[in-house]
Nucleic acid binder design. Structure first.
Lengths: 136, 136
DNA sequence: CTGTGTGCAAACACTTTGCAGGTGT
DNA sequence: ACACCTGCAAAGTGTTTGCACACAG
């Protein structure tokens, strides 16, 4: 699936900014921050444009946002595109990377009577395999 | 355990702001935002003072911060005070409340090789028992 | 051609920092 | 008395909004 097709499928206009964001995020094995995305894009875009593009892509469930500690914001391809289901996110304290743990499904939590759950977010913090190696 | 004792135990000076925050948070069954805390406090305090007080109390593990969707910030008594262990947090989409699910322990997630976890945050979003009743 | 996306400037909200003066111990 | 807390002003940062122009369909 190409970025252009994704945009078409969602009836979104094909603009270089949107297309670029999707491509960059699609290739990356990690969730990326606005700046990391900017670095990998060919054109140069205003911050406002990024914000609006992220918002649009998020609303159409093309990408999803992961927030760590109220300040670090990263984006990754959404489940509806990857078809990998709901998963936990991993944040590495050492290298600040965020990874979608496709193989770590969200577990079911038993809530008290009267509570109904719609969505569960799991963020695991620790050291990723890359950073662990470097410590040895 | 009174608020004053908690401050003493952590070698923190007893100021009305800190004492008030702890008392309000301790009584509440829900996590509270800065404004919700302000409303229940007797004195009036500058935002800066709040920020610094929250920071201090957080660093001493007297309260902990829960962030929903990168914008909604709430505070609750920390585990080390309540002695109730790590638990999931519940966010009600209807009334915007955040509750500590003392009875919902964090489950163990099996990470890929090389990853080590230090801390796991679980935020369950849905409808709380209060809001469910009102719909009936 | 028409509606939508983009860039720029300005506004806004949250948080942090510096400093002078006040308070707890 | 001294260290530290507080309030105020200002700066810093992330995000949103209004508007004119550009571009996709």
């Amino acid at each position: 699936m190409k970025a252009v097709d994704i945009l078409n499928n969602h009836n979104l206009k094909r603009t270089s900014c949107r297309e670029g964001i999707i491509e960059v995020v699609m290739i990356s094995r990690q969730a990326l921050s606005e700046n990391e995305i900017r670095e990998q894009l060919v054109g140069n875009y205003d911050r406002t444009t990024f914000y609006r593009s992220f918002k649009t892509l998020e609303e159409h469930k093309i990408i999803h946002k992961i927030v760590v500690d109220n300040q670090c914001v990263k984006y990754a391809l959404d489940n509806t595109i990857t078809h990998k289901g709901e998963h936990a996110h991993f944040y590495c304290n050492t290298c600040d990377s965020v990874q979608c743990m496709d193989k770590v499904p969200i577990q079911k939590y038993q809530l008290p009577d009267g509570y109904s759950d719609i969505e569960t977010e799991v963020l695991i913090k620790g050291t990723c395999s890359n950073c662990k190696q470097e410590n040895n």
